[in-house]
Design a binder for these strands. Structure first.
Lengths: 211, 211
DNA sequence: AGGCCCCCTGTACTTCGGTACAGTTATTTT
DNA sequence: AAAATAACTGTACCGAAGTACAGGGGGCCT
């Protein structure tokens, strides 16, 4: 892998001491500066100004400097801001005041096509997902799961991913015949006539027709 | 940071040579094995069996081994599978046959709360996002309609209601054969293999796979 | 012990979905 | 005038989906 050319972008254009420590040859730019002459940067670091929407900022950066991977640094990181950054195709989100070693690792990850989310947000995502899976049999509002046996729920979820009977069979280590049995049970219990409706119900688009 | 205890899970339970090279002390488990006695692992690597839905696999692993960070290895990586993995709260997705150094970096990233997405998927996400910003300030995410002719849109919407070809034909006053023609065109233009995916896309659950 | 539910499998059948041939008509674009 | 696009129809074929018979084993409850 080639050496990345780092470019730090902040309101004032100054380089934080730790940034310079992490990447001695990094370039510093102000938000309004034009693209630097010569060999362009290959990796952008954007220090987020306080209280501004991130999407337009990132969009403009891309327009001016090319569609480069961009790492967002926030003085006061919070999960919602992080999500906004990733929605705007940021590649990483971390604290402005992170240690140089940390910054270097983030850079390496991003340079190799990785995404740096940070622990707080990651935990939230994992929590959300596991909670859904754990508590969905009991309630979760739409109650389709409550009508189905555990095995049938697995089948229903696979259907919602678009899996064929054969794929589900391989996935669960059973025969296609048995999958058809479960599918049939799911159809009857949810009161629908085909798997497409099952997919819509599991995806939350429709409600089950059953009592 | 403490040393992570790695646990590789595959169908056969064997450790690939490069896994062992990357993590000499890693534990190998089969899919069906129970949790190992003693100090449990802190990081799971799951080698994905061919053609199986991932969500149930990951859910069951979490049930059995605890809610640990999980890295998914795929013999034939593709973007859709990767998305399914992240939807199931996987922390990383990469090629089974990746080099030891690569695996070690993935592990380090995950151990520090990062997410490893891989270049292919990342490029797609970045592309998608930048395209959205460029071409649809008005409507967002509903790009499926833009790809289809008016008639095809009608058919696509009917599909999302769960209508059969025969019903669509009666509804539009045309033959079933013609409906099939339109359905075929919709499938091709949206880049999906069956009407179920069309229903999910039109319902806003999925994005179109096409350029 | 009998009844109930869950999970699993097999054979055989019908219907539906999707595609591959092969066309027609009308409108628009180049 | 030719080419491209949209809409439409027909026959035919294959595989997937779903159903209808037929069973098997195990666990739980009264």
């Amino acid at each position: 892998m080639k050496q990345a050319r780092h470019c730090f972008i902040s309101e004032s254009g100054e380089l934080q001491a730790r940034w310079q420590e992490a990447f001695p040859q990094a370039l510093g730019l102000r938000l309004a500066d034009p693209a630097p002459a010569g060999a362009g940067p290959t990796l952008l670091w954007l220090r987020l100004p306080q209280g501004r929407p991130v999407a337009p900022l990132l969009a403009e950066l891309r327009r001016r400097l090319g569609n480069l991977p961009c790492i967002v640094l926030s003085d006061l990181p919070d999960d919602d801001q992080a999500l906004a950054c990733f929605a705007a195709a940021a590649r990483a989100y971390c604290n402005t005041h992170a240690a140089p070693a940390y910054l270097r690792q983030v850079a390496e990850v991003v340079a190799q096509g990785g995404l740096w989310i940070g622990e707080s947000l990651m935990n939230r995502l994992v929590d959300a997902t596991s909670r859904v899976e754990v508590k969905s049999p009991s309630e979760s509002g739409n109650s389709w799961a409550a009508l189905l046996s555990p095995r049938e729920q697995e089948v229903a979820r696979a259907i919602a991913e678009g899996a064929s009977n054969k794929e589900i069979a391989r996935g669960l280590g059973i025969t296609e015949r048995t999958v058809k049995l479960h599918v049939g049970a799911v159809l009857e219990k949810l009161g629908v006539r085909d798997r497409l409706q099952v997919a819509l119900i599991v995806s939350g688009v429709r409600q089950s027709q059953s009592a």
